[in-house]
Amino acid sequence: MRNRALISILASLGAIVAATGALAAGEKHVSVQVVDQRGMPIRDAVVEIERPATSTGAFSFPWRNAMAQRNLAFTPGTLIVPRGSVVAFPNLDTVRHSIYSFSRAARFKFDLYGRDQSRTQRFDVSGTVALGCNIHDQMRGYVRVVNTPFAAKTDQNGIARVEGLGGGSYRVTIWHPQLRAPNNEQSEMLSAPASGQPVRAAVILR
């Protein structure tokens, strides 16, 4: 009986260790902090890590492929979507909007549509799609179309947490509408620690 009890305990401990290991593996991530030329954190910069050769197949992000118009602004102001995505543009304002883009990655225009109506657009080319409204000149929005599942936006501390990767050396692309570089983006190799602590990347803003 004692042997059976001991075997049962050891099996339970093994299951706990395996579950803990699986949890830890599922929590691995790479964090990148983006700062400007003064060392100040940059919010809403897009951080993309080149997809490893071992990562294949379709992917999606945990947020919705949607950009609303609310309070005369695009919400969110920057949206990251996989290439080939269909994005919804619901109007949550009491006024009508007409959305357009002259970007190389996508050229389109939605005629005026009102509250609680929506339009959709498919994005088949990777890159940045800058959006505007023909009625409200102050409205600016950006859809960043990516080829990698390893992408995220920076928070108020300038930190983007990219899930699913452990420590290592990666080619990282950073995009921001005010970044002073061709296509408002810069790429570099960064070495991320296995601890998940942020690795810093400095960019120059206009």
Rank of each mutant, 00 (worst) to 15 (best):
R144A: 01
G132R: 07
H136Y: 12
G141N: 04
Q138P: 00
R115H: 15
Q117Y: 04
Q121T: 00
F123E: 03
R119N: 11
Y142H: 12
V129D: 02
L131M: 08
S118W: 08
V143K: 01
G141T: 14
M139G: 08
N147F: 00
G114F: 01
R119K: 14
R144Q: 10
L131Y: 05
R144E: 08
H136G: 02
N147T: 15
G127V: 06
V129Y: 09
V129W: 10
I135C: 00
H136V: 15
D124L: 02
H136T: 14
Y142P: 03
V146G: 00
R144D: 09
S126W: 03
G132F: 07
G114T: 08
D124F: 01
N134L: 14
T148A: 09
T148H: 04
N134A: 15
R144N: 11
G132M: 07
Q117I: 10
D124Q: 04
A130K: 12
F123D: 00
V145R: 06
T128M: 05
H136L: 06
T128S: 09
H136C: 08
L112T: 12
S126G: 01
G132K: 10
R122K: 13
H136M: 10
S126E: 10
Q138L: 13
R119A: 12
N147S: 02
T120Y: 07
N147G: 01
T128H: 01
F123P: 01
V146C: 06
Q138D: 09
D116F: 10
Q121G: 04
I135G: 00
R144Y: 09
C133N: 15
Y142N: 12
G132L: 07
S126I: 07
Q117N: 11
L131W: 03
I135H: 10
G132C: 11
L112I: 03
V125R: 13
Q138I: 13
H136A: 14
H136S: 07
V145M: 05
G114H: 08
G127Y: 03
G114S: 13
V146Y: 01
C133M: 04
S118A: 14
Q138H: 12
R140F: 00
